[in-house]
């Protein structure tokens, strides 16, 4: 077993509340609890963005938590998947248009899975997370393919240097 297979089997979750009402957050906590038990997919809640693969965002983005959200997203290593939990994280919901709210999460960071509902049910969160697992696998594959492309040797003999061409042209002109 190499590192890639471990990552496939156990994606770690990072949770950030960008200004929501706590409702979706307690449902995420309920997902970790024995009744819904999200750990059977190998998932565990972690507090460190540098170790996590899936970012669960709840709440409409307030002006103050916007920078923290982007910062957390930037600190996560590739490949990463973002799930917006709940109506207000997806679109702004009831808070849309309030003076300190910016609207949905997707205005600031790319979102892969939208989970609807106010409040989101644990079953919906699990469904979204399982969808995110497939996306994570796809992203990992794409990332590895692009690395392989770079490693191919570049045939330098066929490439022409612009300065070289100019040198050749010069004597013809003079």
């Amino acid at each position: 077993m190499n590192l890639a297979s471990y990552r496939k089997k156990s994606p770690w979750i990072l949770h950030y509340n960008a200004g929501g009402c706590n409702g979706c957050d307690i449902e995420i906590l309920a997902c970790l609890a024995p009744k819904y038990d999200i750990e059977r997919f190998g998932m565990i809640n972690t507090g460190n963005p540098k170790q996590s693969d899936i970012l669960l965002v709840t709440g409409p983005v307030t002006k103050r938590s916007r920078e923290r959200l982007v910062e957390i997203y930037a600190q996560m290593p590739e490949p990463k998947v973002v799930i917006s939990c709940g109506a207000c994280a997806s679109t702004g919901g009831v808070f849309r248009g309030m003076y300190n709210c910016e609207g949905g999460v997707d205005q600031f960071i790319p979102v892969d899975v939208y989970v609807c509902g106010c409040g989101t049910r644990p079953e919906q969160i699990i469904d979204g997370v399982v969808q995110a697992l497939a996306i994570l696998e796809k992203k990992t594959k794409e990332l590895e393919e692009s690395v392989k492309l770079k490693r191919e040797a570049v045939k330098e003999g066929h490439q022409l240097n612009r300065r070289h061409i100019a040198d050749e042209i010069k004597p013809v002109l003079s």
Binding site: G20, N22, I26, T62, S65, V94, F95, Y99
Partner: peptide, 28 residues
């Protein structure tokens, strides 16, 4: 960190019968 401006919206955007659904979203 999570100031959203619910009080202002309740006094301008929503009718008084709708506000009871908005203030429910203050806290889950």
């Amino acid at each position: 960190y999570v100031h959203r401006g619910i009080e202002q919206a309740c006094c301008s955007k929503f009718k008084f019968r709708q506000v009871s659904f908005v203030v429910g979203r203050v806290c889950g």
